[in-house]
Amino acid sequence: RSTHNEMEKNRRAHLRLCLEKLKGLVPLGPESSRHTTLSLLTKAKLHIKKLE
């Protein structure tokens, strides 16, 4: 059980790190620190579409 908890903790930490990296790559506007994961991913998707 503790192994599972540790793996889950590591998974969440990795996900958080990846989202922070994404936040640095996507133009978010003036309220960049107030975005939810969903809004960050939505803006990333729109940004990628613009680049295509």
Rank of each mutant, 00 (worst) to 15 (best):
L40K: 05
G29W: 13
T37Y: 12
L40T: 05
E8L: 09
K21Q: 02
L40C: 02
K23M: 05
T37L: 14
H47C: 14
I48E: 04
L38F: 13
P27E: 07
K23L: 03
P30R: 15
H14I: 12
T37D: 04
N10C: 07
L17F: 04
L28D: 00
L38E: 06
L15F: 09
G24N: 09
T42C: 09
R1Y: 00
V26K: 08
T37S: 14
K23C: 02
R34F: 08
L38M: 14
I48D: 04
L17G: 13
L28I: 09
K43A: 06
I48A: 05
L46Y: 11
L15S: 06
H35R: 14
S32R: 13
V26Y: 03
E6L: 06
A44T: 02
L51W: 11
L22K: 00
L38A: 09
M7F: 07
P30Q: 13
E6G: 10
T36V: 13
R34M: 08
G24C: 12
H35C: 12
K23Q: 00
M7R: 09
T3N: 12
H14D: 02
S39E: 05
K23P: 00
L22M: 07
R12C: 08
K23F: 04
M7C: 11
T42Q: 14
T42G: 11
H14N: 06
E52V: 12
L22N: 00
P27Y: 09
P30T: 12
K43I: 01
L25A: 04
L46S: 08
S33H: 09
H47P: 08
L15I: 12
L51R: 07
I48Q: 02
L19I: 07
H4R: 13
S32Q: 08
E6T: 13
K9M: 07
G24Q: 15
R12M: 10
L15W: 14
L17C: 10
A44G: 02
N10W: 04
H35G: 14
R11L: 09
E52P: 15
L41S: 02
A13D: 08
H35N: 08
R34L: 11
C18D: 00
S32F: 08
A44S: 02
L15H: 00
E8V: 10
H35W: 11
H4A: 10
S32A: 08
H47M: 15
L25F: 07
H14A: 03
K50Y: 02
T3V: 07
K23V: 03
P27K: 15
E20C: 02
E20F: 04
L28T: 13
H47V: 15
L28S: 07
K50M: 04
L15R: 00
L41N: 02
K49H: 01
T37E: 01
C18A: 08
T37Q: 09
K21F: 04
R11F: 12
S39G: 10
K9E: 08
L38G: 12
L46P: 02
S2P: 02
S39D: 07
G29D: 08
S2W: 01
T36A: 10
R11Q: 08
C18R: 00
K45D: 02
H4Q: 13
R34S: 06
C18N: 03
H47L: 15
I48K: 01
H35Y: 09
L40S: 03
R11S: 10
L28R: 14
E52S: 15
T36D: 09
L19Y: 03
L41E: 00
K9C: 02
P27G: 15
L22T: 00
A44P: 00
L38K: 11
L25T: 00
E8W: 10
